[in-house]
């Protein structure tokens, strides 16, 4: 099993990257790789509760995000300074089984991987 980390850094609706990152993570889980997902920078907006993307004719990725554990993606991380700088509290996240990481913990996570999938 290969250790892989997907880093998702872009907003949920501005372009396709958020969805493409998520699809990649699900594919890695289907291939039984040791895949982890880290949200940072504008990627943390993906986790905000109450998104109604149908207003802009987009699918809701929140449902897929909440299905991650079902597909065997147990390790979902959020870069806490990215939340703080955007004024997002933990309570306003749509996922509760996420681990918040400091800069140092994020560095350690990155350093322990074999492959990074950058989105």
């Amino acid at each position: 099993m290969t250790s892989m980390l997907c880093i998702s850094r872009h907003t949920p609706s501005g372009n396709a990257l958020a969805r493409e990152a998520l699809d990649t993570v699900l594919a890695a889980a289907a291939y039984e790789q040791d895949i982890k997902l880290l949200f940072m920078d504008d990627g943390v907006w993906q986790l905000l509760k109450g998104q109604q993307p149908s207003h802009i004719n987009q699918k809701d990725i929140t449902k897929n995000l909440s299905a991650l554990p079902i597909f065997g993606v147990e390790e979902v991380y959020v870069h806490e300074p990215s939340l703080q700088s955007r004024g997002i509290s933990r309570d306003s996240l749509s996922l509760n089984n996420v681990q918040l990481l400091t800069n140092e913990q994020t560095q350690a996570l990155i350093a322990s991987q074999q492959h990074i999938l950058s989105f």
Partner: peptide, 18 residues
């Protein structure tokens, strides 16, 4: 996408051009 994962898992390096 399985092709990406399979390739990554059997490579020494993965590099993304975003």
């Amino acid at each position: 996408l399985g092709q990406l994962i399979e390739a990554s898992a059997t490579s020494d390096r993965t590099i993304t051009f975003g």
